[in-house]
Nucleic acid binder design. Structure first.
Length: 752
DNA sequence: GGGAGAACGCTCTAGACAGCATGTC
DNA sequence: CTAGAGCGTTCTCCC
């Protein structure tokens, strides 16, 4: 390895390479043309391998314009890596950028050397035909086994198919344990490196009846540990497992299969008795942090706060980003001893601990309760063992009667599932077919088939006839909706046309020509839809709904004399129609007792339900939530009324914002001119983000001012940043000293 | 008849990626 | 094809 790379690693505190890292370097990691698939368990230093490879490219003096891409599966992970890499590498002249969906500060990505991004964002960048892609010489993909994920795997597959053939790029795939790494590596044209070395030893065990059976790779019991019940003997065995661990200075993660369980388990664990006064004090501060995430703490905040006070927390998608950060940070600092969590913590986040307990091995899905994949179980227990802090980690399956010891053993030993291409997912496929045509990568049937032949799908199944049939349907769909144009060129008539002879009922022979080569061109509509990154089916829905709405508005123009009523109608209808798109799934569920009033209200609004009435009601309920949001109904009320949690509301609002923007863009391409509609669209795109009326927008742009504070200020005549500075005293009265200071500092800084 | 507790029945269920300007041939 | 927690209501038994 070059001295330069070594020097940087050393200065970042790396004294020597770990065995697997050394192995990969010996196998030729620094050869810039060699692809790798690194198959390694969680927490063993996979990322550093990617970093070494990246440094190897970026420090090469021969090429000035070299670029590295680092692809991670989660936005939160991307931000975490971004900050880490800035700290580590910026001082050596490596310019690091973050490019994810909701972050748009670095527009000039071409000036950066190392870009951290997600597969979806990169795919989107490719659709916008960024030129710098030609400069990319190395691509590191973290958690590359996600190619087998049924929802998001297809995107990764398309991306890899494009990049692995087209550009001269070294690809380093970092994968968790999978069953068929050889097959996957072969497709990637990559050298496969399999390593099960871990920095901290992992003991796998099964807990039941206050005992832990530790087993080896063959499933034999190698140690039987009996919890010594003295002062912590409780009927709650999970509690015993927890106390046993924290008395030995360890911390725990408990994985549950539902949010409710995660919350209820953490409520059951009161660790106050085992905490020092200092710790209790610190925990109290953490509780305050959690409660101050919102001006008016929500139910979730309060429950979480109470748990944290007792040394326990829960962690799931219902928490907002800020709350999750607080929990993770408290856990890393060893203040919070236990986190009861859903799979939010199984992928990527850096939260190692002494003991990981799997509370459930099955999870609800649309097929009922299904076993959690072994791969995921291994990912979870792989978090056990903090390097330099724990002598060993313990990955434990907890049994309470519903499963046998044998079942649990099977989970911990033996082969892991294979990964399979999920390109056949219809929704993903149609979006990407359009994307391929839009970006010019594909322009006829032949090269489309060639492209498909290069995918992991083709590699894996050999036979592509099934997927090609799907693709035919998709092409037809895209043409029927005018997203693409198909024409049949005649120049190769004889070669490509196949004569088809058919006999009809009267035994007359008819001759038809089957065209084998079709040429595809993208329409402006199709291009926009591909760039907006929405499902073509959603594109179709949006177009239909916009047309329907504009007709309705025309009709109503006389009925509602008042323009603001008309606008309000338009707003509600738009919120309803965006709820129909595939991106907004899953929708809020409609309870039996809500049918009646939802249906009546729907009719009152002149919305005709589709054939699937329940679905329409769900859409309508969804739209009502957004309507409340933009009309400044207090967040806590919305949460209660629709039975959701803060994190979920944020997530839904984010989706709505994106689809509303898509509506606005598609509207501009349609042959409709309806002033009320276009005005409303422009307004909605802004209002949905903040959840407020238009008049508050000036105030909302200021940091630390949300919809509540903005309304408060506005109602007492303070309408913008200038007003705040000029009415210092009044603002203090409204918001308090501390917050006012913060706000004023922000305004002053913005002025500079 | 009244109250306690068992028995039954109903409801509900993990997570989280993606847009963004503008104009030319 | 598959579960299980939590909650509210009803049933049943015993005084």
């Amino acid at each position: 390895m070059s001295n330069r790379i070594w020097k940087i690693l050393k200065e970042n505190g790396i004294k020597e390479l770990r065995p697997p890292q050394k192995k990969v370097v010996d196998r030729g990691l620094l050869n810039k043309n060699k692809n790798f698939l690194i198959h390694m368990s969680t927490g063993s230093g996979k990322t550093l391998i990617g970093e070494i490879a990246i440094l190897n490219h970026l420090l090469d003096q021969k090429y000035k314009s070299k670029k590295a891409l680092f692809i991670v599966p989660l936005k939160a992970l991307a931000s975490e890596k971004y900050e880490e890499f800035i700290k580590k590498y910026e001082k050596y002249g490596i310019k690091v950028a973050l490019s994810i969906g909701d972050f748009d500060e670095e527009e000039d990505l071409e000036n950066y050397d190392l870009i951290i991004t997600t597969a979806e964002k990169l795919e989107s960048l490719l659709r916008h035909r960024v030129e710098w892609i030609e400069d990319v010489s190395i691509l590191v993909i973290d958690e590359i086994h996600l190619i087998g994920d049924s929802e998001r795997g297809g995107t990764l597959e398309i991306l890899l198919t494009k990049l692995k053939n087209r550009y001269n790029i070294q690809i380093i795939g970092l994968s968790a344990t999978i069953g068929n790494p050889e097959e996957f590596a072969k497709w990637l044209n990559a050298e496969l490196v399999i390593e099960d070395w871990r920095p901290v030893k992992l003991k796998k065990g099964i807990a039941y009846k206050n005992r832990i059976l530790f087993i080896n790779e063959d499933g034999d019991v190698v140690e039987e540990y009996t919890l010594t019940p003295n002062n912590y003997n409780s009927r709650n065995q999970l509690f015993n497992l927890v106390v046993d661990c924290i008395l030995k200075d360890g911390s725990l993660l408990i994985f549950c299969n539902s949010k409710r369980k995660a919350v209820s388990e953490s409520k059951k664990l009161n660790l106050k008795k085992y905490l020092s006064p200092d710790e209790l004090n610190e925990l109290k501060k953490l509780k305050e942090d959690i409660l101050s995430v919102f001006d008016n703490p929500t139910e979730t905040c309060k429950t979480l706060g109470e748990c944290i006070e007792r040394g326990v927390a829960f962690h799931h998608a219902g928490l907002t980003y800020e709350q999750r950060k607080i929990v993770e940070e408290g856990f890393r600092k060893k203040l919070i001893k236990v986190i009861c969590c859903t799979p939010t913590l199984s992928m990527g986040m850096n939260t190692p601990c002494r003991r990981v307990i799997l509370r459930d091995l099955k999870r609800f899905s649309n097929r009922g309760m299904v076993p959690i994949p072994k791969m995921e179980v291994l990912q979870c227990i792989g978090r056990a063992g903090r390097p330099n802090l724990d002598p060993y980690g313990e990955g434990i399956i907890y049994i309470d009667g519903s499963i046998t010891v044998e079942d649990a053993k099977n989970y911990l030993t033996g082969p892991v599932e294979n990964i399979y291409s999920k390109l056949s997912n219809h929704r993903i496929l149609r979006a990407h077919i359009l994307g391929l045509i839009a970006s010019g990568e594909i322009d006829n049937k032949k090269n489309l088939e060639e492209f498909i032949n290069n995918t992991f799908y083709a590699h894996q199944y050999g036979n592509t006839s099934k997927i090609l049939k799907n693709i035919n349907d998709i092409i037809e769909f895209l043409e029927a909706n005018k997203f693409i144009k198909i024409d049949y060129k005649d120049d190769n008539k004889n070669k490509n046309d196949i004569k088809i002879l058919t006999l009809d009922e009267n035994n007359n022979i008819t001759i038809s020509h089957k065209k084998t080569n079709e040429n595809y061109t993208i329409t402006s509509l199709g291009k926009r839809i591909s760039e907006l990154y929405i499902d073509p089916l959603s594109g179709k829905i949006i177009i239909e709904e916009l047309k329907k709405l504009s007709k309705k508005l025309e009709r109503y123009n006389n009925k509602y004399l008042n323009t603001s009523d008309l606008k309000d109608y338009c707003t509600q209808y738009l919120l309803y129609s965006i709820s129909k798109t595939t991106e907004m799934m899953p929708l809020l569920r409609v309870r039996n007792n809500e049918w009646d009033y939802l249906f009546k209200e729907m009719l009152k609004m002149d919305i005709d339900p589709d054939e699937d009435i329940l679905r329409s009601l769900e859409c309508f309920k969804n739209s009502k939530m957004f309507y409340d949001w933009i009309n400044e109904v207090p967040e806590s009320k919305i949460l209660e009324k629709y039975g959701i949690e803060p994190g979920i509301l944020r997530y839904k609002v984010e989706q709505a914002k994106w689809i509303l923007y898509a509506n606005k863009e598609i509207y501009a391409l349609l042959d409709i001119e309806e002033k009320c509609l276009s005005d409303t669209l422009n307004e909605l795109v802004i209002r949905i983000e903040y959840g407020a009326s238009r008049e508050l927008i000036e105030l909302l742009k200021i940091k630390h001012i949300g919809r509540n504070r903005a309304r408060l200020l506005y109602n007492s005549g303070i309408k913008n940043g200038e007003d705040i500075l000029n009415n210092h005293e009044r603002v203090i009265k409204l918001l308090g000293n501390k917050i006012t200071d913060k706000i004023i500092n922000c305004i002053k800084e913005n002025k500079k």
